[in-house]
Design a protein around this nucleic acid. Structure first.
Lengths: 115, 115
DNA sequence: CTCCTGATTCGATGCCGATCTAAATGATAG
DNA sequence: CTATCATTTAGATCGGCATCGAATCAGGAG
């Protein structure tokens, strides 16, 4: 990523993206450019406690467990969520910084992403 | 409810997205989830005057004119850009509201400086 | 140890999208 | 009318992706 902290314009409209930056961002965006993954992300993020068990997620879809698992892996590989096994069940939660980074891409007057 | 990660609520994490909302948003996101279209959007938005001629865009890529035209159409169909013919050339510009809507999806509503 | 259940991984399939070539169309300047 | 810029269309190839069923792994429970 080129240095772009606290600007007046959306980073995407500030200067032309390099080929590598664009490729990198496209990977991130592809991860969320899917109805199922969007809903998963939303369900995880809005779940009480900030985390959700896979068993809670699977029921909401008309998809098999392997498919849900696949989508969760895509989100996890993209760095948008993380998970932990606790006993029998696996819990997922959102990584806020990653989501915020997506938002900053398209948002004017980006706040300084304190990390 | 205090979440361990201390995030504020991006719209995506406020409540579970409906199936239709997710599908609709995925269409928008798919439009930007491509390296070429991301660069096109960025080049258009960052171009002096806020608009760019197709002839300026095509040279920056190693792609044929029909392919560039195709990507521009995808962005235009998604409502992210618009265009106008002036004489010989066609100029494109970004529709800020559409980009901002994308940003809002992933951006926390208000930041009470929780550092 | 053995069985059951939850979750992931694996291998295969079928579809969608990015890209090209080639050609046609439309719009405009000279 | 002709040349140029841009879009469109059609046909074709190629890779990636969503999905499934079956196998596998990881932990309780008996």
């Amino acid at each position: 990523m080129t240095v772009a902290t606290g600007q007046c314009c959306a980073p995407i409209a500030r200067e032309p993206l390099s080929e590598t930056d664009a490729a990198e961002l496209a990977v991130l965006l592809k991860a969320v450019a899917d109805p199922v993954r969007l809903r998963l992300l939303s369900m995880i993020g809005s779940h009480s406690g900030g985390e959700a068990c896979v068993c809670d997620l699977t029921d909401a879809f008309d998809l098999t467990a392997p498919t849900i698992s696949h989508h969760l892996k895509v989100l996890r590989t993209a760095g948008l969520i993380d998970c932990e096994r606790r006993g029998t069940w696996v819990y997922y939660w959102i990584i806020p910084a990653a989501v915020a980074r997506l938002g900053a891409l398209f948002t004017p007057l980006a706040e300084p992403a304190t990390t």
